[in-house]
């Protein structure tokens, strides 16, 4: 399942239709992510790169409103593990939450 989305990195957005006998398949190619996680000296940065963006683009973090507070980021990281099976070590969670709150949330430097 993982290979299915990693393989889509491409500079073009295409849709193809293959005709083979009676069968008609519609095939598309999706664009690659335009943004990456923001670099940071915080220890949670590397852990976020390893754990978060395997499943979704960094736009999920980047576009949150500036009042997004630490409890939100904490709840999201816990949800990603509990619901979406992200293989996050419990010991890494506080650093990931710290990175997210300080980089994308209401603890960003003014």
């Amino acid at each position: 399942m993982r290979a299915r989305f990693i393989a889509v990195a491409t500079i073009a957005a295409c849709a193809l239709s293959f005709a083979s006998g009676a069968a008609v398949a519609k095939t598309i190619q999706l664009p690659s992510d335009p943004v990456q996680l923001k670099e940071s000296p915080l220890p949670g940065y590397a852990k976020a790169r390893a754990n978060c963006v395997a499943c979704h683009s960094a736009e999920y973090m980047l576009y949150q409103p500036p009042n997004a507070a630490r409890p939100y980021w904490d709840a999201m990281v816990k949800r990603m593990k509990a619901v979406f099976k992200a293989p996050i070590d419990d010991a890494d969670m506080p650093e990931i939450v710290d990175y997210l709150a300080k980089t994308y949330g209401n603890e960003q430097p003014k």
Binding site: A12, C14, A15, F18
Partner: peptide, 8 residues
């Protein structure tokens, strides 16, 4: 035996 749609 196929066509490309909206490839840009």
């Amino acid at each position: 035996a196929g066509s490309v749609l909206g490839c840009q």
